[in-house]
Design a protein around this nucleic acid. Structure first.
Length: 424
RNA sequence: GUGAGCAUGGCGAAGUGGUUAACGCACCGGAUUGUGGUUCCGGCACUCGUGGGUUCGAUUCCCACUGUUCACCCCA
């Protein structure tokens, strides 16, 4: 091993036929749901100019600092494989002037994202996300709807015990104010903080709330540094209250978590995560009212979320480990004698032309082995043709479940099967 | 980036410093003439991730490399 030719790149995965079924299922589920909620699909490039992510996602985020797949193309431009979906959708929104639409713009996407991380359980370098974005509407009703959709996607996919953690991270009015307060309160304790938090204190103090280190959390308490939730401006407070009221009326249970800080810098006001007991978060989102302007568009509010599909499927596989069914084969054509080879292929074509899933052996196996293959492939019936059938223009139709077999004229085979004559 | 574990046939998985590397699954063939799924019989690793070292001798001991898994970090 260790062979570059025969080994996939680290952090990637092959989705084999037996698993693709699950992917198709989940994709169908989200598409249907999006349609019901009035979202339209958008497909943006899998790579963008590096600048878009650096500016959009945030220079100080881990994603931008150390996780991007960035390279220089042959034209000397720096491009980056998208590490998340929102930035590209925002860019497309601006570039294509979708802000010209008279109504709120509701979009969804689904596809691969790339982050240079150390792979582990539920964490890949090429990951897959499904996400929704709403542009041009700033009311709390939108926040509530988007959260509701987020939860519904997970429920419909088969997750029962989804928990929503909710927070508000403020806006361009209250955030800078809060930041100042944090720096002021925490600087005297700087030495006690872990090295990461010392750095955070300078670059993004809000993230200290997210630190798992108990000492840091102790320092936070002791210092009297306010949570962002305690520092919201009036407008943000009103908005947040509105969101909660709407969620309650929609019977979506949530838990307010004042320490919830999302890893992307563009979030404003509402931020949330969907978690399942025992797993890392499977989905998360937030409002990003400044992002469109940041990307060069007109001042436009936005909000969205993303679901980690690989994680979602992993959890589903844990919870419902039943085997995925292979696609159903109806008929396997067994050629009992080489002289009937062409005859068999003609019949195979007739079956397929009639929309009946049919297959045959391609390896020149003997009859016994062909029947074995038919059984293995899950065929309901075999059509057996040999010298005898050829000479009489008939076929043998064997029911693999009951083992019974009958002979009927070739011309009647398709009709017989379609009329449900195969029921016994 | 930090730490720990693991690398044996298509898959799962034993094992030992020394003549033939268990076993299970899968696969292939056979059990009389053109009939599967059950059963029975037989077959299926010049070789134990790569390179080097110790040794009379290593798949088993040591080192390096590579890969992989898990945790931390962070995130979906």
């Amino acid at each position: 091993m260790g062979d570059l030719l025969t080994q996939r790149p680290r952090g990637t995965t092959d989705i084999l036929p037996q698993d693709v079924v699950r992917w198709q299922e989940i994709e169908r589920t989200v598409r249907e749901l999006c349609q019901v909620y009035g979202y339209q699909e958008i497909r943006t490039p899998v790579f963008e100019h590096t600048e878009l992510f650096a500016r959009g996602v945030g220079e100080t985020t881990d994603i931008v600092e150390k996780e991007m797949y960035t390279f220089t193309d042959r034209g000397g431009r720096s491009v980056t494989l998208r590490p998340e979906g929102t930035a590209g959708v925002v860019r497309a929104f601006v570039e294509n002037k979708l802000y010209g639409w008279a109504d709120a713009v509701k979009l969804y996407y689904i596809g691969p994202m790339f982050r240079y991380e150390k792979p582990q359980k539920g964490r890949l370098r090429q990951l897959h996300q499904f996400g929704c974005e709403v542009f041009g509407a700033s009311g709390p009703d939108v926040d509530a709807e988007v959260i509701a959709l987020n939860v519904e996607v997970l429920r419909r996919s088969g997750l029962r015990d989804v928990q929503v953690e909710l927070n508000s991270v403020g806006c361009s009015v209250c955030r800078p104010r809060h930041r100042e307060q944090m720096v002021e309160k925490l600087t005297p304790f700087k030495e006690q903080l872990c090295t990461d938090c010392q750095r955070r204190l300078e670059r993004n103090p809000l993230r200290i709330f997210d630190c798992k280190n108990e000492i840091c959390q102790g320092v936070l308490m002791e210092s009297g540094a306010p949570t962002i939730l305690e520092s919201l401006c009036d407008d943000c407070q009103i908005h947040f209250t509105g969101v909660q009221a709407l969620l309650q009326s929609e019977r979506i249970t949530f838990k307010i978590n004042p320490r919830l800080v999302r890893g992307l810098d563009y979030y404003t006001r509402t931020a949330w995560e969907c978690v399942l007991p025992g797993y890392s978060s499977v989905a998360g989102g937030g409002r990003y009212n400044g992002l469109v302007a940041e990307a060069g568009g007109p001042e436009t509010p936005g909000i969205g979320f993303a679901v980690g599909l690989d994680r979602l499927l992993m959890i589903l596989a844990d919870k419902q480990p039943e085997k995925s069914a292979r696609s159903r084969l109806q008929i396997f054509v067994v050629v009992a004698d080489p002289t009937a080879q062409v005859y068999g292929m003609e019949i195979l074509q007739e079956l397929r032309a009639a929309g009946i899933a049919a297959d045959k052996d391609y390896l020149g196996k003997g009859m016994k082995a062909q029947l074995k293959s038919a059984d293995r492939l899950g065929a309901a019936f075999t059509v057996i043709v040999g010298e005898r059938e050829l000479s009489k223009a008939t076929v043998g139709l064997k029911n693999l479940v009951t083992g019974s077999q009958l002979e009927l004229p070739r011309a009647e085979l398709v009709e017989y099967l379609q009329s449900g004559g195969d029921k016994q």
